[in-house]
Structure formats: structure tokens, C-alpha cells
């Protein structure tokens, strides 16, 4: 956590009282309400669903790749809940549709015993590192629907990873695959000063938090 307690700012009252702050808001976050800011650092790729693939490789029993059609033939799964961005907005009650990452991992024969971490990577080359435990047990999805509609390109369409219990930079847009490793390897933002895990409830924004 940060080094010292916040010092009151003269004249600042804020939008809410600490006592009646929405309990769904992690520390330091605000409610983005109807907006959904886009914060990707790279050019939004024009990626056709027909060209999209998902690879699960590294320390799994049977590394494999799914096409769009193959992925859509898997049992569907949904996430309905909140998401939190490190830039300090949160968004409540979002609904994503796709397939649980557990299903893809099982389809690749499951993680090998040595696997401890994952690098999730995009068709743009963007990467994010995650402990394997954060993307298994019904906590991560590959999604292609938002609110029942196709996921827009700016938000990672045709398909992205979501890991909603962590800051949203971990939820790799335009996801191309996951590589299971026996060690942690920092991803794109993690090499640029951001926290390795990114738990919003512990306010793990930057390295050193």
C-alpha cells in the first residue's frame, strides 16, 4: 500500500461520503456509469473473426489452437459483474458472453504440474502476466459478446480475455493465446511500471504498491 494516510485537501468534499460510498467500489475507484473508456496503447487492429485463433500452449498436456468456429462450439459461459480499470474507473453490472478459460485449458489436456503462471498475449503482441490460479476455477473467460452484442474492436473484439477480479489491463484485448510457464514473466504494462498482480481491492496499481 501507499506510504502514508491521505492528507485532507482544503475545501474538498467529494461526490460521496466515505460512509455511504458504494461498497462495490474498490479503494481509489470511481463509478464510470454509462461510459466505458478505451485505454489501449496500440493501434486497434482490424481483425476478422475468420482470422481469429486462440492458442493454449506451453506447460499443458496437449497444446492446441482453436478457430473462431471451434471456440464457438464449446459450452458457453457468461460473466455478469463489475470491472475495474487502473486509471481509476470501475463499471458495474457488465455482461460478457463467451467460454470459460477452464474449458480451453481442459481442451488442451489441462495444465502440467509444473505450470504456475500464464502469459496472455494479443494478436497485436500486447502481453500480460498472470498467476495460473487467477485464470482457473471460473475466474477468467474468453469473450466475444458484450451486452448480447458482438464485442466492438476498440474493446478487444472479435474476442478478448477477461479476468474481472484484477485490474482490466490484465484482460488482454484481441487475445491470441495463453502460454503456461513455470515462472512469472512481466507483460507489457508490468515492464512499464505496473504491478505484477493488479488486485483492485488491494490497490495494486504500480510496482511497489
Amino acid at each position: 500500500m501507499t506510504a502514508h494516510d491521505p492528507v485532507p485537501t482544503r475545501g474538498f468534499t467529494g461526490r460521496a461520503r466515505a460512509a455511504d460510498r458504494d461498497p462495490r467500489l474498490p479503494p481509489g475507484q470511481y463509478d464510470a456509469r454509462d461510459t466505458w473508456p478505451v485505454l489501449s496503447a496500440e493501434v486497434t487492429p482490424r481483425l476478422d473473426a475468420a482470422d481469429w485463433t486462440l492458442r493454449v500452449g506451453g506447460l499443458v498436456a496437449r497444446p492446441r489452437t482453436w478457430t473462431w468456429a471451434e471456440a464457438h462450439a464449446l459450452p458457453p459461459s457468461r460473466y455478469a459483474g463489475d470491472i475495474h480499470c487502473v486509471t481509476s474507473w470501475s463499471k458495474f453490472g457488465v455482461r460478457f458472453g463467451g467460454v470459460s478459460l477452464d474449458t480451453f485449458l481442459a481442451g488442451a489436456g489441462g495444465p502440467l504440474p509444473a505450470a504456475t503462471h500464464v502469459v496472455a498475449y494479443a494478436h497485436t503482441g500486447y502481453t500480460a502476466n498472470l498467476p495460473l490460479a487467477d485464470v482457473t476455477g471460473g475466474r477468467a473467460w474468453i469473450v466475444w459478446e458484450y451486452d448480447g452484442e458482438p464485442l466492438p474492436p476498440e474493446h478487444g473484439g472479435p474476442a478478448r480475455l477477461i479476468v474481472p477480479h484484477l485490474y482490466f489491463w490484465k484482460s488482454v484485448k484481441w487475445v491470441a493465446g495463453l502460454e503456461l510457464l513455470d515462472h512469472d514473466e512481466p507483460g507489457f504494462w508490468e515492464k512499464n511500471g505496473y504491478h505484477h498482480r493488479g488486485d483492485p481491492w488491494r490497490e495494486e496499481r504500480y510496482a511497489g504498491d
Binding site: 502469459v119 497485436t124 502460454e179
Partner: peptide
């Protein structure tokens, strides 16, 4: 990359 020897480099462009 299918092994964990050396840093993992995604088979995608950019970064």
C-alpha cells in the same frame, strides 16, 4: 515457444 527456456516471445507482431 512451447518450452519455458528463455523469455516467452508471443508469435504475434507489434509489442
Amino acid at each position: 515457444t512451447e518450452t519455458t527456456s528463455g523469455a516467452f516471445v508471443p508469435p504475434t507482431a507489434f509489442a
